[in-house]
Deep mutational scan, measured.
Amino acid sequence: TFELKGKVGKVVKIAEDHYLVEVEGDKWIAYSDEKLSLGDRVMVVDVDGLKLKVKRIP
């Protein structure tokens, strides 16, 4: 999972307290300090167990 840091993915689902992002064909639970929208491109900035911390990228 640490090899996911720096990888780019996209938001595929928005849940009440987390996001579902697809990175390299796999779906992961993710969270972010900013509000994300469906389809946003994101970069993995940290890995916390099986959850990814992501940030939006242009």
Results as ranks from 00 to 15, higher is better:
V44D: 00
E16V: 11
R41C: 07
K13A: 14
D40E: 11
K27V: 03
D46L: 03
E3D: 04
E34L: 08
I14H: 13
E22I: 03
V44C: 04
E22C: 04
D48M: 06
E24D: 06
K10G: 12
P58N: 08
I29R: 11
I57K: 06
G6I: 00
D17Y: 06
E16F: 14
E3S: 01
L52M: 05
V23D: 01
Y19V: 06
G39M: 08
A15R: 09
D40I: 08
I29T: 12
W28R: 05
V8G: 09
A15M: 08
P58G: 15
K53L: 10
D33Q: 07
Y31L: 11
Y19F: 11
D48G: 04
L50P: 12
G9Y: 01
K10D: 14
D26I: 04
L52C: 03
T1F: 08
L38A: 11
K51Y: 04
L50G: 10
M43I: 15
G25R: 15
K27N: 03
L36F: 15
K13G: 06
L36D: 00
E24L: 08
V47C: 03
V23A: 04
V23W: 00
K35E: 11
E16Y: 09
K5I: 13
G6W: 02
R41Q: 09
P58T: 12
F2C: 10
D17R: 14
K10Y: 12
A30W: 00
L50F: 13
Y19T: 11
V45P: 00
K5R: 03
G9K: 00
L36N: 02
E22N: 04
V12P: 00
M43T: 13
F2E: 13
D40S: 08
L4P: 14
G6P: 00
T1A: 15
L36S: 03
V45Y: 03
V11A: 06
V23H: 02
A15T: 10
S32R: 14
L4M: 14
V42E: 00
G6F: 02
V45L: 11
L38E: 09
L36I: 14
I57N: 11
M43V: 12
V23S: 01
S37N: 12
D26N: 15
V12L: 07
A30V: 05
E24G: 11
F2M: 12
V54H: 00
K53A: 12
D40A: 05
Y19D: 05
A30Y: 00
D48E: 13
K55D: 14
V45F: 11
G25C: 06
I14K: 09
V42W: 00
H18Q: 09
M43R: 03
K35I: 03
K51D: 10
I14D: 07
G39C: 04
Y19K: 05
V44A: 02
K51F: 10
Y31E: 13
L38F: 10
S37P: 15
V47Y: 07
E22F: 03
E34D: 08
L20G: 13
E16W: 08
L20V: 09
D40Y: 12
R41E: 13
A15Y: 14
S37Q: 14
A15K: 09
V47I: 07
G39R: 04
E3T: 01
V44I: 04
R56Q: 06
S32Y: 07
I14R: 09
G25M: 09
D33R: 11
V11R: 00
L36C: 06
A30G: 11
D48H: 06
H18T: 10
Y19W: 09
D33A: 05
F2W: 08
D17Q: 14
Y19G: 11
L36G: 01
F2D: 13
F2Q: 13
K7M: 03
V54Q: 00
D26F: 13
R41I: 12
Y19S: 10
V47G: 05
M43F: 09
L38I: 11
W28C: 02
L36P: 07
E24W: 02
E22A: 08
G9S: 03
Y19P: 04
F2L: 15
K7I: 01
K53M: 12
G39N: 10
K5A: 11
D26V: 10
V54F: 01
K55V: 15
K53I: 04
D46A: 03
D46H: 04
L52G: 01
I14V: 10
V8L: 05
K5V: 11
V45K: 07
G25L: 12
L20F: 12
A30I: 02
I57Y: 10
G9L: 02
V47P: 04
T1P: 14
L20Q: 09
V54C: 03
K10C: 06
A15P: 12
Y31V: 09
V23R: 01
H18Y: 07
W28M: 05
V44S: 01
I57A: 04
G6C: 02
V21E: 00
P58L: 07
R56V: 09
E34T: 04
Y31I: 06
P58K: 10
Y31C: 07
L36E: 02
V44T: 03
V8D: 07
K55S: 15
M43E: 15
